[in-house]
Design a protein around this nucleic acid. Structure first.
Length: 268
DNA sequence: GACAACCTGACC
DNA sequence: GGTCAGGTTGTC
């Protein structure tokens, strides 16, 4: 579900309503999602004040003073703030704050939440493996990170160790806008193509945030409402349909285990 | 690299 | 019944 723009939309929604609030009580309904385990999870979080909410790639970081809470939304995770009791479907964890509730809902349960001491964050295996945030890199760093890989460019863009935040939708959309075939080797991209790709990545991510995320299936923002980027998709989910630019039927293939849609004529 | 695994649901 | 799905990890 959530790539960088969806995660950022949720972050902005939540910052406005939970900053300064205290976790008074919590309920864990699906133990395996609460790391390192449900007991420690509750013990460490109860009574903590939410000082801030950061994001790195697709990862959310709740700043709680001595502790930090990491939340990865996986494929279908959602964080929904409500003042009413109404439990969203597939709610697995509930945070009772002073003035509202924060629900973690996730039909497929691929997401996870983990509490750890703030000083241990730099050694956290997942956090430490992440490359720079895709929205924050400048061109020089972008070029440095994606160059030198023999792999196909789509694989490289999806690799969170290279850049953090791009997922399947925004990768396909960026490659289309840059006019680059997803099977091209990263090594073989010309400086001009890298520049176009950099600009395309920034454009789709910013536009995704502007439209509050892409709700094709499950995604909802921090208040449970869908986003609108799905109305601006040019290739993702359009296999077999005519390219908006040249009319050629869009092709579908599989790269790094992910469905990939592209225009064989516009993307070279 | 390709593929299965973790899960549940939607769609043909 | 089979296929596919905004992610990540671990195995041949």
């Amino acid at each position: 579900m959530p790539e960088l723009p969806e995660t950022e939309t949720i972050r902005r929604d939540l910052v406005a309503v939970i900053t300064g609030k205290t976790i008074q009580e919590l309920r864990v309904l699906v133990p395996k999602l609460a790391r390192p385990g449900p007991e420690i999870f509750c013990l460490q979080l109860k009574g903590r004040k939410i000082r801030g909410l950061q994001r790195h790639g697709k990862l959310l970081l709740f700043e709680l003073g001595k502790e930090v809470l990491l939340v990865h939304l996986g494929m279908t995770g959602a964080l929904i703030f409500r003042s009413s009791e109404a439990l969203p479907p597939y709610t697995h964890i509930v945070f009772y704050l002073d003035g509202g509730k924060l629900f973690y809902a996730d039909p497929r349960r691929f997401g996870w939440l983990e509490v750890l001491p703030a000083e241990a964050l730099p050694r956290h295996p997942f956090y430490a493996s992440l490359g720079p945030d895709a929205l924050k890199v400048d061109f020089l760093e972008f070029e440095k990170k994606i160059s030198g890989h023999k792999r196909r460019i789509k694989e490289v863009l999806l690799d969170q160790r290279v850049l953090a935040g791009l997922g399947n939708i925004y990768t396909d959309e960026a490659l289309f806008r840059a006019g680059i075939h997803p099977c091209r080797r990263a090594t073989g991209l010309t400086p001009e193509e890298k520049r176009r790709l950099f600009e395309a990545v920034k454009t789709v991510l910013h536009r995704g945030i502007e439209l509050r995320g892409c709700s094709i299936r499950n995604y909802v923002d921090g208040h449970g409402n869908p986003g609108h980027f799905q109305n601006e998709l040019r290739v993702y989910g359009r296999r077999g349909e005519p390219c908006f630019r040249c009319g050629t039927p869009l092709l579908y293939t599989r790269i790094a285990g992910r469905g990939t849609t592209f225009c064989p004529s516009c993307q070279r």
